[in-house]
Each structure stands twice: as structure tokens, then as C-alpha cells.
Write a protein that binds this DNA or RNA. Structure first.
Length: 401
RNA sequence: GGAGGGGUACCAAAGUGGUCAAAUGGGGCGGACUGUAAAUCCGUUGCGGAAGCUUCGAAGGUUCGAAUCCUUCCCCCUCCA
């Protein structure tokens, strides 16, 4: 049991109440019955990113300890939208959209979870048939004041932004999921605290044993400040193109390395300690740590070969400043081109003005030669490579045009 | 139903008749530097090869001149009930 606790505790932000977790584990070990672990997935945004995997990793660990996971597809709640941390009311999705998103979710989620020990359930199964009287009973368990304790609601209220009544039902529905599933442990980010605790309240109301709320920290995104989220664009999706995924991993701020290793990487606890102390005393270069992490992440989601390619590309282009081995090609008639036109033609600039700026700023190279004159006219041959900045390239193909 | 506040560029937010293509911050892009696409510093950020053109919720109007004034419309928020 001590072993289980050590594993479970890694990277966790908060366990409420911890004592209850200990009891549940003990009971599980004695009876040989696995604990029922729940994770709700709101199918509004179908793409899973590294931030989501923090919680998924934890579930995976629990699965490896023998416990069983219920993955709740919030097909019903998804039509409401969790107001958590949202500045505005989310738009409600149609059932078709929810189904579509849920499908994508499933595919991605099993890159982390063990399908053998995962049960997929839809919460419309038990939420849709509820009668109004039952809904009222749920609603009667909490007060408006209590609801407004939630920071996001308070904030919106204070800032005169709208809060719709149906949004109040979100926590209740999520909590009711726990009742329906007899959940022992519910996982979520720290921002889910209110919802997770609501599950305890409702389970008590229904005479069940209360679940343990296990909260994971919110992973900071590429900007190093805000939590990783799709809407902020500071995320690494687990379905991204190889080089992009590797590159994004390399652009994580140095200071976040210890955290990423703790929450994202699967290195053993011993290695984790070694890495973190190495980073702390400077004996381990943050870049090397980052390359290791980037490689691990790409390997995990896209395979080892992809990871190798990505690393090679990285070394060529950014460490040695060489041309990458795979430059996108564009067909073009041979001849003389005005630089600006050439850039726009190749899609390396969105407008003439933008292209001119790039040249003025010394960002443009043609066959390795920096072009500084905005009025330059250039000969384009087959194979001419045009580069803007450090990472945008186009090779011209004049054959067959 | 009544009273009030507001809609400015990718986002936030100044600007209330000319000096506004529109301050400032964030973001983006670029440069320098660093064996990192990190950090830091600097530059740049409507379109246009130039003259110039089009932008401040929408449409009209006043004026030599409007993001700024007037009219109508659309959208958002708050308070009272």
C-alpha cells in the first residue's frame, strides 16, 4: 500500500481527503476489488494536448496499480459547457458535434490509457432520463451563495459578465455522474476542485460513500505563464506533425523543465530526482533536458522513428544553421523575380507590405545569400531555396512549368 | 416594463473635431546574442514597388476636415421591477 501511495502522490496537487484515500486503498487491497476511478471529459474541444495528459498519466498509473477507470464522455454536459475558467458562457453543442468530438477523443485518449482497464460511458445514459422533480432535488442540495464561491462565477459576477442559470447545473451534473458510477476517486485539474467536491456532497445526499478528489496541477503552456489550453494557443497537441511537436517542446521555457519532467515525462521517480537536482545545480544543461523531454514526448505519441527524425531536423536547422533536409517545394516559372513578389508568390509572406518588412529586417535569404535590397531582382533557377527567418523555407521547382 | 453603461486594430485598452494608420501593454513576426524555437536586448506589426488608398459595431448626415458631433439600426452589459 505504501508503494501505491508513493506512486499516486507523485506530482499531485491535492488529495481531499487524503485519509479517505488510504482507507479506500486498504479496503481495495484486502478485498481484492479495484477502486473505481472517474475522469470526465468534456467533448467541446476534441483535441487532447499535453496538459490533458497530466491527468491521464495519473489515471494510467492507477490502472497499472490494478484500478479501473471510468471515462465519462460528457455528451450530455457537453451540450451545456463547463463554465470553469471561461470568461464567457460556452456555446452549446449539437448532439452530432458532441459525438464527433467524442470519437476523436477516444482515439487520442488510448495513447495514454490502458483500454483493458477503461470503461467508456456517456453521461447522457443517466442524465437524460432524469425527471424534473429529480433535477430539483439535485439543485436543492446547494445554495446560490455556495455556487458563487466558485472563483470564476465570482469573477464574472463582479465584472458584470453574464452567468446563465443553466451553467449552475454543470457542477451538479458532473457530481451526479459520480453518484451514478459509485466513484471512489475522481480526478481532475485543480480548477475542478469545486466540481469534484460537489460529487462528495451529492454522494452523501444519496447515501453513498464519498469519493476522494484527486487534483493534478495545471500544466503551464509554452508561454510559461498561462495554463496550457487550446484557446490560448500555447499547447502541444498529441496529434501534431512531428517537427512541430518537437519544436514546440523545445520552446518550453527553461524554468519549466523540472515541472514538465514531473508531470509529463514517464521517467521513474529516481531519475526524476536526478534530473531535477542536476537542473538545479547547473550540472545538467536545460537544453539537454529539453531535448530529452522533446524526444520522449514525440516518441510516445508519434513513435521512435519520428522522434529521431525530428531531433535530426532540429540539429541541422537550429544547432548548425543548415538547411533542413526536407524543404517544401513550390512550382514556379523560371525567370527574374522582384524579391517581394517572389516571397508572396511562394507563400512566405502574406502581403507585399509584410514581404517588404521581412527584407528590411534582414530575414530573407536566397540560396543562403541575405537579400537586403527591397528592389532586388533575382534569377530563379530550378532548386533555388528561399528562406524567411530561421524556420520558413521554400525550394523553387521550375521543371514542368 | 423602467433607468443607465458600452461596442476602437489579433487581444486588452487609450483617444471625444484637424498634429490619428490611431498612444500603451500583451501576442505575433524579425534581428542580435546563447551549442535551445528558453532567457535577455532591439526592431517591426492595415494595404500598396510609388503616388496614394481603405480602417475605429452598421448605414446615413453635419463639416473645408470625423474614431471623435447628429440620426437611425444592430449587438453586449448593469441596476430597479
Amino acid at each position: 500500500m505504501q508503494r501505491q501511495l508513493t506512486i499516486i502522490r507523485r506530482g499531485v496537487a491535492e488529495i481531499v481527503p487524503e485519509q479517505s484515500l488510504v482507507q479506500k486503498l486498504r479496503r481495495s487491497i484486502l478485498t481484492g476489488k479495484p477502486l473505481r476511478v472517474k475522469l470526465g471529459m468534456d467533448p467541446t474541444a476534441p483535441d487532447i494536448h499535453l496538459g490533458h495528459t497530466v491527468v491521464l498519466n495519473k489515471i494510467r498509473q492507477l490502472q497499472e496499480l490494478g484500478h479501473i477507470a471510468h471515462l465519462v464522455i460528457g455528451d450530455f454536459t457537453g451540450q451545456i459547457g463547463d463554465p470553469t475558467d471561461k470568461a464567457e458562457t460556452r456555446k452549446q453543442l449539437t448532439p452530432q458535434q458532441v459525438e464527433e468530438n467524442a470519437r476523436t477523443y477516444k482515439e487520442q485518449v488510448f495513447k495514454v490509457l490502458d483500454p483493458e482497464k477503461t470503461e467508456l460511458v456517456h453521461n447522457s445514459t443517466w442524465l437524460a432520463p432524469l425527471r424534473f422533480a429529480e433535477v430539483v432535488r439535485l439543485a436543492s442540495t446547494l445554495t446560490v451563495a455556495r455556487m458563487l464561491e466558485r472563483e470564476d462565477f465570482t469573477k464574472r459576477f463582479r465584472e458584470n459578465r453574464p452567468i446563465h442559470v443553466h451553467e449552475f447545473f454543470y457542477p451538479l451534473m458532473q457530481a451526479y455522474d459520480s453518484v451514478a458510477l459509485h466513484t471512489d476517486i475522481e480526478l481532475g485539474g485543480t480548477d475542478q476542485k469545486f466540481n469534484l467536491l460537489m460529487g462528495r456532497t451529492l454522494q452523501r445526499e444519496f447515501g453513498q460513500q464519498e469519493q476522494v478528489a484527486l487534483m493534478m496541477p495545471l500544466l503551464e503552456g509554452l508561454d510559461g505563464i498561462h495554463k496550457m489550453s487550446k484557446s490560448l494557443g500555447n499547447y502541444i497537441g498529441i496529434d501534431e506533425p512531428t517537427q512541430q511537436m518537437y519544436g514546440k517542446a523545445m520552446s518550453i521555457p527553461d524554468v519549466l523543465m523540472p515541472r514538465y519532467f514531473e508531470l509529463v515525462s514517464q521517467v521513474s521517480n529516481e531519475e526524476l530526482v536526478a534530473i531535477q537536482s542536476g537542473l538545479a545545480d547547473g550540472s545538467y544543461h536545460p537544453r539537454d533536458a529539453k531535448m530529452r523531454l522533446a524526444r520522449e514526448v514525440v516518441t510516445r505519441f508519434l513513435g521512435e522513428q519520428a522522434a529521431e527524425e525530428a531531433e535530426k531536423h532540429w540539429r541541422e536547422v537550429f544547432q548548425q544553421g543548415d538547411l533542413p533536409s526536407d524543404i517544401p517545394e513550390a512550382n514556379l516559372a523560371a525567370g527574374r523575380y522582384w524579391v517581394i513578389r517572389l516571397l508572396v508568390e511562394l507563400g512566405l509572406a502574406g502581403s507585399n507590405s509584410e514581404a517588404r518588412r521581412a527584407v528590411e529586417q534582414g530575414a530573407v535569404r536566397v540560396d543562403g545569400q541575405r537579400v537586403e535590397d527591397v528592389n532586388a531582382e533575382l534569377d530563379v533557377r530550378d532548386g533555388t531555396v528561399v528562406q524567411v527567418g530561421k524556420r520558413r523555407f521554400q525550394r523553387c521547382r521550375t521543371v514542368g512549368v
